[in-house]
């Protein structure tokens, strides 16, 4: 039981739950903006699971494996770029059609 309550396991499970919540928003939300938010929650969940992997990989004097950490940082920036592109497309979609 104590194993399940270590930060790495606890936040790993939290990440797994966030993936489900985010995915639900992506699939079932009627609003497109909410789907983008859902994508971000889904991504956050995946990063958190990866963070649990990093925490477990502590070694060589580090409290957590630096390689997954660096990959998550890269991932967060890429996720932001993708959200920005999605938001720009959404705004364009909401504009009144000029050719109509």
């Amino acid at each position: 039981m104590t194993v399940a309550l270590q930060p790495s396991v606890l936040f790993g499970l939290c990440g797994a739950a966030l993936v489900g919540i985010g995915l639900f928003a992506v699939v079932s939300s009627p609003g497109l903006l909410r789907r983008i938010v859902g994508c971000n929650i889904l991504g956050a969940g995946i990063f958190l699971v990866f963070g649990a992997v990093a925490r477990r990989g502590a070694g060589a004097g580090f409290e957590a494996d630096p390689v997954p950490q660096a990959l998550v940082i890269t991932g967060i920036v890429v996720a932001f770029s993708a959200s920005a592109l999605a938001v720009a497309l959404l705004k364009r979609l909401a504009e009144p059609r000029s050719d109509a």
Partner: peptide, 10 residues
């Protein structure tokens, strides 16, 4: 949560 996972950079 990331602080608790010992990842202050993240």
């Amino acid at each position: 949560a990331w602080i608790r996972l010992a990842a202050p950079d993240v």
